[in-house]
Amino acid sequence: MAALTNSVGDAGRVLLDLSGIDRLDTLGAWVLDRTRHELGERGLAADFVGARAEHNILLNEVAYRGFQGAPVKDTWNVVDIFVDIGKTMVEAWKDLVRGVSFLGELVMAMLRLLVRPSRFRLPALINQLELICFRGVPIIVLISFLVGAIVAQQGIVQLQRFGAQAFVVNLSGILSLRELGVLLTSIMIAGRSGSAFTAEIGSMKMREEIDALRVMGLDPIEVLIVPRVLALMIGLPILAFLAAMAALLGSGVVAWIYGDIPPDVFLARLKSTIDLRTFLVGIIKAPFMAIVIGVIASNEGMAVQGSAESLGRHVTASVVKSIFMVIVLDGFFAIFFAAIKF
């Protein structure tokens, strides 16, 4: 067509003979009419001749009109980076404010339930406990066992150089009880149950089920979120305890096979290095981790908008934020316990 357009000199009038065309689709019609239009712009009156009646209708339907593409933005700009950083910071701050106000709503809902316990949904709590706690046991125990074993193995290798491999018991004992159990469990629960909360609540939001609850006079926080957060607060300490035991078992097995520390020696050393406090430091953190995971997961779920893409984004955000906050919180606890010399 371009060649055709160029080959036309200054004939003054151009006739496009379409009589040989059997089938014409929108693409063909568009190109034909665009050609006519371009010839017209060069001052050449172009016309179609011999087109079939139905082709004429199509040609009229797709008559050439200029389309304006979306304005192309400058691809890269230093200012854009700062704008981006600024927006991210503002969003992060808003996120924090939303999280705290959500925590407030949650506490209010729990207090209301304390006043009127008959409204509490025990079946939902039991159901969630099964999903979070009971069904989470195998994977959490397995992972903690493996991590406990790896830490012990590395500990033995390093401590052997100083001939102090017996201290691997202190290392894994304190580490398992204070940090590993609760931290591994929290991270696993954030990935396993936090994502499930966000997806469940988010898809209920998408399908207007949350609105349906509200117009029935039911409080979605009371119905959906309180049972889940409570189940987390009960389930996470139990799982953290199991995880700590599994990590100890893992390190005990490795110490026996790899470090020639028989179980009775391992247990005796363990008994002399740890006390109830070591265990408490770990387990006290668990309910707080549960609240953080629960609040972030529910908050992200309630923020889901209409699209599947939004659901995916919020599930990802839920897991990433929960894991991040769990680790930050663990750091704060470490500082706190050091400060009060516990």
Binding site: M204, E209, A212
Partner: peptide, 20 residues
């Protein structure tokens, strides 16, 4: 009283919004 009103109305959402 709001809850009293809420039990006196029924809503049919466009997509049904049945609890899945």
């Amino acid at each position: 009283s709001r809850q009293e009103i809420e039990r006196r109305w029924g809503v049919l959402f466009q997509q049904g919004a049945l609890f899945s």
